[in-house]
Amino acid sequence: MRWIIIVLSLMVFPVTGFAQSGDEVIKKSQDAFFYPGKDFKARVMMKLIGKGGQERIRELTMLRKNYGEAGGEQKIFMYFFQPTDVKDMTFMVYKYPARDDDRWLFVPAINMVRRIAAQDKSSSFAGSDFTYEDVSGRDIQDDAHAVTKEEAFNNRDCYVIKSTPKAGDMNYDYKLSWIDKGNYLPLKEEYYNKKGELDRLYTSDEIKEVKGFPTITKRTMKNHQSGHTTEVKYLSVDYNIDIDDSLFSERYLRQPLKKWTE
């Protein structure tokens, strides 16, 4: 009998032996990554680098406000500086847990506000190697999360989580995430395609503490299949700046205030 218990516990240990489940780690990671502070503002510089080295720049200000608990509703406002053909364009998202976002786009040349369809979260964000989900977070219950091991990465102790989409319609088969045990930020993510090849590789390249919140201020997403890379840098970042609810409205989508966008 004792022999059977030992065997069973050996079999079960790799799954249940960790202090936290995959879902718990991913929840804490999303809270640390997408929800710190009451609100957040960053001036974001994205560099899109083609296989041949040609570069394109996307520069924007991103403002985000949380409503309710971490993991709950959020409102996001973006103002584009570059490239020139989208300068002064604004973009607004109401993000809801477990249902489609509401998205609005303002086109300054014709002073037009439009809703845009948002079911496809795996679409590229502004032409980069990041998807909308990479930018705003993927619903936790859309994947099965399992802690596969614990190991050090860049001298930080990490949980390694395997996240497998429950629906088969994603453009990757599974994702491995190295999540820092201390601050729960993802340090590395590997996306594997259906053939088991590395599809995209994410790395956090610089982490700084801003108003007490560990913040990834430089990150890279490299598409190993296409050779295309996107580097993202926060030129400035701030938290708890009392963003007014009224910012997230058609009024300011059409006429954004400089104090928020600059």
Binding site: I116, A117, A118, Q119, D120, S122, S123, S124, N171
Partner: peptide, 10 residues
């Protein structure tokens, strides 16, 4: 009626 059918196609 507007719908996104697949990545970057509407």
């Amino acid at each position: 009626y507007q719908r996104q059918m697949w990545d970057d196609f509407s």
